[in-house]
Simulated assay, not measured.
Amino acid sequence: MILPQSTNLTLFSPEDINDSLGALFFDTGISAGFPSPTEDFKEQRLSLDRELIKNKEATFFARVSGQSMIGAGLNDNDLLVIDRSLEPENNKIAVCFLDGEFTVKRLRVQKDEVWLQPENPDYPIINITAENNFIIWGIVTNVIKKV
């Protein structure tokens, strides 16, 4: 199911999670140093839905559009996993609805003030005021990247 879209994010909800499916998973880890003997590998099934989604009804996916969060490892076209059931906290990365647009930024909360901080020095920090139409839509829990 595709949800409303703005110029910054397209939101998707997860499909039904089928417990019988999953990709092959080698539980020994893949060496980034010296190769490991192949007889050490144990083959299992792994469902990324079960690994990445803790609350299906409150979880959505969105593609990143833009470069404002590259310092946090969120690049253009990455796929975000967003959980709307999590409480927003200082320093969390959140998807926010700000003045008619979705945006993803790091939350900075101090006393009664909220800022949206990009992770790219080319973008300004946004101070949220009473004049803004502002909602913290969900908290980013994972990012899926293409290599």
Rank of each mutant, 00 (worst) to 15 (best):
G29S: 12
K42V: 15
P118D: 01
I82D: 03
T38M: 14
L9K: 02
G66L: 01
G22M: 13
N55A: 10
T28G: 12
L107S: 00
I126D: 09
F102K: 00
V109Y: 13
L24A: 08
E119L: 01
T129Q: 05
K146G: 12
G66S: 04
K92E: 09
S31F: 11
I53G: 06
E89G: 07
F41N: 13
A62S: 15
F34S: 14
E119F: 00
R50S: 05
D27K: 11
G33S: 10
D122F: 08
V109A: 13
I53A: 12
I128C: 05
L9V: 09
L9C: 08
K105M: 03
A130V: 09
G22P: 04
A94M: 14
T10Q: 09
N127E: 15
V95Q: 02
I53L: 06
N127T: 13
E87F: 08
I93M: 03
V104K: 00
P121Q: 14
F26V: 15
G29N: 01
G33L: 01
E89K: 09
P4R: 01
E57W: 13
D78N: 01
A23Q: 08
K145N: 11
L107E: 04
P4E: 14
D76G: 00
I128V: 13
K146Y: 03
L21H: 10
D112Y: 10
S6M: 06
N77C: 00
F134M: 12
K111L: 11
F102D: 01
N55I: 07
S6W: 08
L107C: 05
G22A: 12
